Lab assay of single mutants.
Amino acid sequence: MGFKLLSKLLVYLTASIMAIASPLAFSVDSSGEYPTVSEIPVGEVRLYQIADGVWSHIATQSFDGAVYPSNGLIVRDGDELLLIDTAWGAKNTAALLAEIEKQIGLPVTRAVSTHFHDDRVGGVDVLRAAGVATYASPSTRRLAEVEGNEIPTHSLEGLSSSGDAVRFGPVELFYPGAAHSTDNLIVYVPSASVLYGGCAIYELSRTSAGNVADADLAEWPTSIERIQQHYPEAQFVIPGHGLPGGLDLLKHTTNVVKAHTNRSVVE
């Protein structure tokens, strides 16, 4: 069995187990497998329904001669939608809004960016022009300005110390501490036991640490421990890039980060 097929099978099995364990909360999309990078042309966006009122959005972007996937989250909030992270750029984010209108038909009224990198804030200006209120932590807003990236308009308070959590509509926002970046936030959907790890969490097929220019490698494993301790009931975990899975993604990420750190020390 090929690795790609095995990865998709694991996603399907995880979703099936969740649907059985929580039949009222989960209505997993039966329309197909989780979209992969090879299936999404740059400039297009796919939506994948995880649970009743919960979707991931998947886009792709060219970077350094390669094409990478990027995940975000959409959560229903009454007759409105909360968006977590842009679709990595203005063109993708405009396509995301169009796809949401086509498939869901509810307005996106608020959006949260989970850290300051372009795959999370690139497209904020498109959201703002569409009347979406954009939010991020003060740290993310400051770092985005320093980096020359787009800056969300509103500040999220109460997320300055490791372990801080605040309720934001249908989700809980959690600051686990520094990891992929010093400002990275985690998003949890309690009604569906869905954990969105953003770039602080890796997919299972990833074996290298990737972009760690703004990471705190020493603190990252401790931050992941905080996530595990705060959300032990999480059933569906979405990484910032690639295929979702279960809580095993947290341990896998820790292993990859520690291996990278150990290699760096040896070198």
Score class of each variant (00 low, 15 high):
residue 1 M to T: 03
residue 3 F to V: 09
residue 4 K to A: 05
residue 5 L to T: 09
residue 6 L to M: 08
residue 6 L to G: 09
residue 7 S to V: 10
residue 10 L to N: 04
residue 12 Y to T: 13
residue 15 A to S: 11
residue 16 S to Y: 05
residue 16 S to H: 15
residue 17 I to H: 04
residue 17 I to D: 04
residue 18 M to A: 04
residue 18 M to S: 05
residue 19 A to I: 15
residue 19 A to F: 15
residue 20 I to W: 07
residue 22 S to M: 06
residue 23 P to G: 08
residue 25 A to R: 06
residue 25 A to V: 09
residue 25 A to E: 05
residue 26 F to I: 06
residue 28 V to D: 11
residue 31 S to T: 07
residue 32 G to R: 10
residue 32 G to W: 15
residue 32 G to H: 07
residue 33 E to A: 10
residue 34 Y to D: 10
residue 35 P to F: 12
residue 37 V to R: 08
residue 39 E to D: 15
residue 42 V to K: 13
residue 43 G to D: 06
residue 44 E to D: 07
residue 44 E to W: 09
residue 45 V to L: 08
residue 47 L to I: 05
residue 52 D to Y: 08
residue 54 V to N: 01
residue 54 V to L: 05
residue 54 V to Y: 00
residue 56 S to C: 07
residue 57 H to P: 01
residue 58 I to S: 08
residue 59 A to H: 06
residue 60 T to D: 06
residue 61 Q to P: 13
residue 63 F to D: 06
residue 63 F to V: 05
residue 64 D to L: 06
residue 66 A to E: 08
residue 71 N to P: 01
residue 72 G to Q: 00
residue 74 I to P: 01
residue 77 D to M: 06
residue 79 D to K: 14
residue 79 D to Y: 15
residue 80 E to I: 13
residue 82 L to Q: 12
residue 83 L to C: 03
residue 83 L to E: 05
residue 85 D to T: 01
residue 85 D to I: 00
residue 88 W to F: 13
residue 89 G to M: 03
residue 90 A to Y: 13
residue 90 A to V: 13
residue 90 A to H: 14
residue 91 K to G: 13
residue 92 N to H: 05
residue 95 A to W: 12
residue 97 L to D: 03
residue 98 A to P: 12
residue 100 I to C: 03
residue 101 E to N: 13
residue 102 K to S: 15
residue 105 G to N: 06
residue 105 G to V: 14
residue 105 G to M: 04
residue 105 G to W: 10
residue 108 V to F: 03
residue 112 V to D: 03
residue 115 H to F: 00
residue 115 H to I: 00
residue 116 F to M: 15
residue 118 D to H: 06
residue 119 D to C: 00
residue 125 D to A: 12
residue 126 V to L: 09
residue 127 L to T: 01
residue 127 L to A: 07
residue 128 R to M: 06
residue 130 A to L: 08
residue 130 A to R: 09
residue 132 V to L: 13
residue 133 A to C: 12
residue 135 Y to M: 06
residue 135 Y to D: 01
residue 137 S to K: 06
residue 138 P to K: 15
residue 139 S to F: 01
residue 142 R to C: 10
residue 144 A to E: 03
residue 147 E to S: 08
residue 147 E to K: 10
residue 148 G to R: 11
residue 152 P to G: 05
residue 152 P to V: 12
residue 158 G to L: 13
residue 159 L to H: 03
residue 160 S to W: 13
residue 165 A to S: 14
residue 168 F to D: 01
residue 169 G to I: 03
residue 171 V to W: 02
residue 171 V to L: 06
residue 171 V to G: 02
residue 171 V to I: 06
residue 172 E to Q: 14
residue 173 L to C: 02
residue 176 P to I: 04
residue 177 G to V: 01
residue 178 A to V: 11
residue 178 A to K: 12
residue 181 S to A: 12
residue 183 D to V: 01
residue 184 N to E: 01
residue 187 V to W: 01
residue 195 L to M: 07
residue 196 Y to G: 03
residue 197 G to C: 14
residue 197 G to Y: 02
residue 199 C to I: 00
residue 199 C to K: 00
residue 201 I to K: 00
residue 204 L to H: 09
residue 205 S to N: 15
residue 206 R to H: 06
residue 208 S to R: 10
residue 211 N to I: 07
residue 215 A to L: 12
residue 217 L to P: 08
residue 222 T to H: 13
residue 224 I to P: 00
residue 224 I to A: 15
residue 225 E to N: 15
residue 226 R to H: 06
residue 227 I to F: 04
residue 229 Q to G: 12
residue 231 Y to H: 04
residue 231 Y to F: 04
residue 232 P to M: 14
residue 233 E to V: 08
residue 233 E to D: 12
residue 234 A to R: 02
residue 236 F to A: 06
residue 239 P to T: 13
residue 241 H to G: 00
residue 241 H to K: 00
residue 241 H to A: 00
residue 241 H to E: 00
residue 242 G to N: 02
residue 242 G to T: 02
residue 243 L to T: 14
residue 244 P to Y: 14
residue 245 G to K: 03
residue 246 G to F: 10
residue 250 L to S: 01
residue 250 L to Y: 05
residue 252 H to A: 10
residue 252 H to C: 02
residue 253 T to P: 00
residue 253 T to S: 13
residue 253 T to V: 00
residue 254 T to C: 08
residue 257 V to R: 02
residue 259 A to Y: 14
residue 260 H to R: 08
residue 261 T to W: 10
residue 262 N to Y: 09
residue 266 V to D: 14
residue 267 E to I: 13
